[in-house]
Design a protein around this nucleic acid. Structure first.
Lengths: 189, 189
DNA sequence: GTCTATAGCGCGATAGAC
DNA sequence: GTCTATCGCGCTATAGAC
């Protein structure tokens, strides 16, 4: 427990920030959660202040998410598989999403990386997949970009609602995925 | 400026809470924004503490939104019209959404009314509309509930992304609405 | 109903020994 | 790198005059 104290502080801060917000989390709580003596300023040996941990933790999570995303692009698969995987990614991104959702407005610098991940990564990967499917005639659509955006944002909306309210709205995950895939393929049901 | 000071405090608190969060807003700021002498405890003549304003303001906004929703149910209209109207409703709900998104996790009591509005109101109104359309053969779908949920959550996702990042993702509002309506109708493009 | 003034205190941050 | 101890600010909330 020497220099990885820094990593431990970041791990626990991620959890605390996601659960309680940055303003709602005290340095003392972070010290306590990271196994440091609460009330001591030991925290400040590793970060100049609370904002610095926030920046470090967001940067780390964004980098991790971007790396995961890279390994996936270009692998053709069924729409249903892609959609289920997107749900899983969103679950892993959840602490980051919660933090950025809370703190993004006061700190615009936090917004941009997440937007890149969701927009570029998400939508572009989706529309690439759609383009492939269009060539093969599985999907007919003049406006693949809008279609891809609708699919991705529907997944995001479902994830947020489920995560936020503790229960899914309208349909559970599997029914959601299957119906969405049918819609995207343009089948008339 | 006599007894409506209470209403003014609520109006300004709604804005401040949405922009800065509850913890990030001081009573002094509220007093200042409401035209009271900052630093005086005049705020406390109207509310026992910050939590009380929060509860009052959320209750008021939820009631307003529910009332608006009531007037709309049962009016048949084109899907595109419904979707555009839903966007407008979400814009009006935005301050409330932002507050509940931030503070809901610490205050589960705030979540429930908004969930009712989004889930019951939204999804049920949608699936009613869809049922009508199915009778008339405009929509063919065995699972109207899932279809309605997808449409509503796509709209919510688009709204959140646009509002959150300052720019729409993938497609602007009108293209989004038109493509979504075509998807819901099951047209093969 | 609004003001001035201030009590009380939790929190972020620092100093200095080990 | 971690501890004990503490400073000082800014915030919530109250007391009391007008």
């Amino acid at each position: 427990m020497a220099t990885d104290t820094r990593a431990r502080i970041m791990d626990r801060s991620l959890e605390l920030f996601a659960r309680q917000g940055v303003a709602g989390t005290t340095v003392v709580e972070i010290e306590e959660a990271a196994g440091l003596s609460p009330g001591s300023g030991s925290f400040y040996r590793h970060f100049t202040n609370k904002e610095a941990v926030l920046a470090a933790v967001v940067e780390r999570e964004v980098a991790r998410a971007a790396a995961e995303r890279e390994t996936r692009i270009g692998t053709p698969e069924r729409l249903e598989v892609t959609y289920r995987r997107t749900f899983d990614e969103l679950v892993r991104l959840q602490p980051l999403i919660e933090i950025v959702a809370r703190e993004g407005r006061q700190r615009p610098g936090l917004l941009e990386p997440l937007q890149r991940i969701l927009a570029e990564g998400g939508a572009r990967a989706e529309s690439t997949l759609l383009a492939e499917r269009m060539e093969r005639g599985e999907v007919a659509e003049e406006d693949a970009e809008a279609l891809a955006a609708i699919a991705m944002l529907a997944l995001v909306g479902h994830h947020l609602a489920e995560n936020f309210f503790g229960a899914p709205i309208g349909a559970d995950r599997e029914r959601f995925v299957e119906t969405l895939a049918r819609m995207v393929r343009g089948h008339a049901f």
